[in-house]
């Protein structure tokens, strides 16, 4: 399977990754050869086979809807790269009206 730098760029955008020109070229060739090796899966017929998402059967797990203490706000906000008065600071999301 040939992965072009254009496909790499599209996937990088979906992945929220800024890539350099050099990274785009490297990933295009590496992903191509990895996917070429992975293409051996096509030799194995899987029609009608149930997909497995978990090896050990899991079902919904419920708990009583009770309020329990959570981490203190200060401890959580203290982890943020930038914070102000108990809030996490991020760049402006909405454009300001002129």
């Amino acid at each position: 399977m040939r992965i072009t730098p254009e496909v790499v760029e599209r996937v990088a955008r979906l992945s929220r990754l800024e890539l350099t020109e050099e990274e785009r070229a490297t990933f295009a060739s590496q992903l191509s050869s990895i996917l070429e090796y992975f293409a051996r899966l096509d030799r194995l017929p899987t029609e009608g086979v149930e997909p497995t998402s978990h090896a050990i059967r899991v079902t919904n797990v419920f708990r009583p809807d009770q309020v329990v203490p959570s981490l203190p706000v200060e401890a959580v906000v203290a982890m943020a790269p930038q914070a102000h008065e108990g809030f996490v600071v991020v760049p402006r999301v909405l454009e300001a009206e002129e």
Binding site: L31, L41, V49, P51
Partner: peptide, 29 residues
Amino acid sequence: KRRIMLGTFALSEGYYEGFYKKAQQVRTL
């Protein structure tokens, strides 16, 4: 980065059936 790209690709429109779902079926086998 390589693995995020590989995973995003395998889950993206047009490739999901051939890669991700296929892999989950082989996992059953």
